[in-house]
Amino acid sequence: MHHIVLERWSRGRSALHRRDARAKIVALLVFLVALATAERAIPQLAAALFLLLCAALVWARIPVLAAMARAGVALPFAATFAAVSWISGDAARGAILAVKSYLSALAVVTVVATTPLPALLRGLETMRVPRFLLTVAQFLYRYLFVVSEEGQHMAKAAAARGASAGRLRFRVAAGALAVLFARSYGRAQEIHGAMLARGYNGRLPTAAAPRFGASDAVFLASASLAPALVRIALDRFA
């Protein structure tokens, strides 16, 4: 599965991996806003920002081509709308949409590939995102592949009993979903029991927020200034 790749990349030890999650989140937002709000000189801006991301990926020792392929997940949607835009007589706009959404996805890949998800969620928590939501997201990610595997087993079992894969009859599929629901519900209760058994008192203990060091500040300043300056320069002179 694709996720394993991202998770493996995120356990790297480069200087970019070691930067504080908050610094990377802010830099990502600056990058995305600089790209999203641009209306002039898009090709030049896109080229410059693309090189910036490539430099970051190389610095983090992440395979650039594989990361680019990973970001390509965003393309089908973008391509559909680019085509729609083209049919509707606005080809240039369609191309811009595709480029902007692809670069944005690549930027997200760069951050997620250099920051383990728990660290990212912890960073968001110190940035005032509701803790309740983040804890739900943490559990969701923890059990995502466990439940998915159960779902796949069930689909396989149904296929083995005659329903050709992917074409279960409607009722059978609904029954399978209901069973998967019940199992997930049971698992949640078991998890809750396991938490209580180890003294859970209504608050998940969190790791202390990592220290935001001087190198994080330097990184934050340069990583946010770079896309902003590129953007300003192109707006002025292009």
Binding site: F139, L140, R142, E150, G151, M154, A176, L180
Partner: peptide, 19 residues
């Protein structure tokens, strides 16, 4: 909290079962 998280995972997984 675990219930909401696991049910979120369920919705993810449910999208793999085709109708």
């Amino acid at each position: 909290i675990p219930l909401l998280g696991v049910m979120g995972a369920f919705v993810f997984a449910a999208q793999m079962i085709n109708f």
